[in-house]
Every structure is written in structure tokens, then in C-alpha cells.
Design a protein around this nucleic acid. Structure first.
Lengths: 222, 222
DNA sequence: ATTCCATATTGAATGGCATTCATTTTTGAA
DNA sequence: TTCAAAAATGAATGCCATTCAATATGGAAT
């Protein structure tokens, strides 16, 4: 018999639990920072026993990585259309970062989450190894354009994000100017000055429609 | 009577202890990373009781900050001469970073230490507050040249270092080209593209003094 | 030299937290 | 209904930063 014909209760519950844990993780870690977030609280908020978390995630860091991957996934979805619009990988990349910035600056939860992302970037890279970037569409899309080493793109992207996160969370980059930040990121991530300057000079190309904005459920009085 | 006439045994021991702790801290934290380093081991390596450490440093983070400050101090010493050679703050800054890079790439201990420096940059900034940058000669030197907000310089410098540390430790910046890295850092830290490009174009060492009219002309509109 | 106290040192105790694991509960097939 | 395998549980473990009550020490005053 087809074992898939009806997804058993277990499978469904597991899916629910995993999602609940990811959401709880994102919530708590965003609110308190990754270090201060306790597995206990995350478990409670996901209506799950403390030990159960470890059936789904090997460790706290592992959970954090999964949470960030989840965030990135959502980001990437908003980005992929662009590849039909632009033919220059630099443009795609720039646009991608632009999107990241717009979202990151607008969403307190992500900003706080990214705050501690050094470890995460590290873990992400270690976990991904050389070429298994199945899910990282941002990277994949860039790879479509004969960028020599797709892995490099992703690494740079993550560094850009981390660096930017450092910048805004520390307050040294007033996020008043997205374009400015983009330029800095481009420089930081290895595009040439000329590329960056040129990109900065020309206006942002026509944008694909943005999906409905998500609600920010987080307390703002922190 | 002059209480200083002979420094008592206590004062001498305290000085020794402090130094021993800083050295032990740098050693252990460099070897194992800040997180993995235990206060216990640091205390042992400094031939001191576990609790004693807290007579000298408020917390583990506090110790880490002191260790990094110590490193920075040594770095700064190698930098100060430059201020006699250059009159443009951008040059001084660029040269400073250049030195940091050269040293950091050559010294594994520092590289590893810087690796976890996100927290430290944070703590450093928190600790220093708006204007108490007495010891940060790098920043002070920059301040000599009418850079509007000296605090800003230091903040940016620390970010540059952190960012660079992320870069090399993660392997995304092959430190083959120091100059290139410098340019990226300059961009990242808020000098204008033009400034950076110009700096990149001309060889670092000798240059005619100029009034140094620094202006940030980056677009501020979205 | 001796006394004495302020100050420094100490390491055992505390508390918080990630992680583990022996039990219990649930599940789906027989 | 029965049963073995899988999943969930939360109490127990161990690690570690930090605290603190007890102890040792240095040097000033006698």
C-alpha cells in the first residue's frame, strides 16, 4: 500500500511541531536575543516538552540556524522574480540585497535576530558545505548567470547580511539611506568600486509588486 | 609622607596579577575562542584563585574587552608615528587599518580572538560611552584632524575590524590583497566611494598636505 | 616586634541553562 | 485487541559564570 496515501497523525503533528518550534524560536530569539532565549521558554511557547525540542533540532544553535534559514527562505521568495527582469548578475545581486535591507530595516524582529548572526553565518556555512545550496535561491539565482563559484556568492551574501546587521544594530549605519547601505555592502562583498558606483548611479530598476506586508506581532516597547 | 615612595608589595602583586590575567585571557581565549574559554582555566593559568579574577574584572565579557583593548593598544602604538607623515585624516585612517590588517593576517592569535568580536565591539562601545576614548589612540589621532565626531571614528573603526575579522575568518576575503581589503573597509565604514577610490588610486605613503575638506555626499533619499 | 584592621584572596556554594535519558505515551499495523 | 516501534516527556546531569563567607596578607601604628 502506498504509505503516503494519508499522512498519518504523527506526520501531521510533527509538521505542526516543527513549525511551532520555528515560530516560537523566532519569536523568543527575536525578543530576547539568541543567547538570552532559553530552550525551556521556546518549548513552552510551542506547547511541547523541553526534551522534545531535541527530537527536532540537534542543539540550540541548530535551531537558531533553522530559524534564520526560514527567514532567508521567505526573503528569497520575494527575490526570485527579479531574475526575469535583470540580465546582469550584479543587478540581481544588488536587488537582492536591496530587498534584504528593506525588509530587515522595516521588521524589528529580523533586525534583532540578525544581531547575533555571526555564529549563525558560521554555522550556516559549515552546514552547507561546498555545493548543497539547494534552498538558497538567492545564491542559486546568482549562479544562473555564470558567476564562477555559486558557493562564493552565498558566502558573500551572508556576510553582507551579517555585516549590515552589525551596522544597523550597532547604530553606525543610520538606515535612512538604503542606497548608501547597498553601496557599502557591494563594496564589502567584493564588487568593484566602479560596479558599485555605477549601480548606485542608476535608479533602481522597475520592481516586481510586493506581496502583502506581514504583520509585526512583536512588542515595540523593548 | 609620599605614599608612593615605595610601591608596596600589594600594588606590585596586583599589577602582576592584572597582567598575568590579561595574558592568560588572551592565550586561552585565542586558543579556544571566547565562549569555550573558562574563567577557571584562565585563573589557573594566571596562578590565581577562581574568584580572584572578579576582583580585577567585573565579568568574563569585561575581561574579554580588556584583552582586546590591550591588543588594540599594541596596535595603536605601531600606528601613531603616521600622524607626522600624513595630514589627511582619511590617510591616517587608511594607514591605521592597513596596519591592523597586516598584523591581523599575520598573527593567528589575534585572528582567532577577533573572530568572536561582535560581542566585544558591542561591549567596547557601551563601555566607552560618548567621549571617553582616552586610550584609543587610533581614534584620537583621527580626532586631531577635525573629524566631526571622534566617537564615530572609533565606532567605525571597530566595525571595520570586526567586519574584516569576519571576512578573513570565514575565508571570503583572501587576504592576498591588503589594499583591496582596505578599500572595502573604507567603503564599509562610511567614507564615500570617491574618497575610497581616490585613496585606492594613489599609493599610500607620501602625499602633499591638504585642508582635508571631508564631506559625506552620499544620497540620503530612498 | 607585635598588634590590628582594611583589603585581597580563596574555593566551595549557588543558580541558570543546555543537553541527556530512562519512562511513559502514542501510533499504526497485525 | 495487541504489540513493537517511534515520539514525547520532564526530571536528572553536568557545565560554568558568578557570589560570598571565611581566611590570609600587608603595612601602619604602637
Amino acid at each position: 500500500m502506498d504509505t503516503k496515501q494519508t499522512e498519518g497523525r504523527v506526520a501531521r503533528r510533527q509538521k505542526r511541531n516543527r513549525i511551532a518550534l520555528l515560530e516560537a524560536g523566532e519569536e523568543v530569539m527575536s525578543e530576547k536575543g539568541i543567547d538570552a532565549a532559553t530552550m525551556q521558554e521556546i518549548a513552552e511557547r510551542a506547547d511541547v516538552g523541553a526534551g522534545t525540542v531535541y527530537n527536532y533540532f540537534k542543539s540550540k544553535d541548530d535551531l537558531a540556524v533553522a530559524v534564520l534559514e526560514n527567514v532567508m527562505e521567505r526573503l528569497a521568495e520575494r527575490i526570485e522574480d527579479v531574475t526575469d527582469t535583470f540580465s546582469d548578475p550584479a543587478q540581481v545581486y544588488a536587488f537582492g540585497i536591496r530587498q534584504v535591507l528593506k525588509t530587515a530595516t522595516g521588521d524589528v524582529r529580523w533586525r534583532q535576530l540578525l544581531h547575533r548572526s555571526e555564529v549563525i553565518a558560521d554555522a550556516l556555512y559549515r552546514r552547507m558545505g561546498p555545493y548543497p545550496m539547494r534552498d538558497m535561491r538567492l545564491a542559486t539565482e546568482a549562479g544562473r548567470f555564470n558567476v564562477p563559484d555559486p558557493a562564493l556568492i552565498w558566502r558573500l551574501t551572508s556576510h553582507a547580511i551579517v555585516g549590515f546587521a552589525l551596522g544597523i544594530t550597532k547604530g553606525s549605519l543610520p538606515p535612512s539611506s538604503i542606497d548608501e547601505a547597498v553601496i557599502r555592502l557591494l563594496c564589502m562583498t567584493g564588487l568593484t568600486i566602479d560596479d558599485a558606483a555605477e549601480l548606485a548611479a542608476r535608479p533602481c530598476p522597475p520592481l516586481p509588486p510586493e506581496p502583502a506586508p506581514r504583520k509585526n506581532r512583536m512588542r515595540t516597547d523593548i
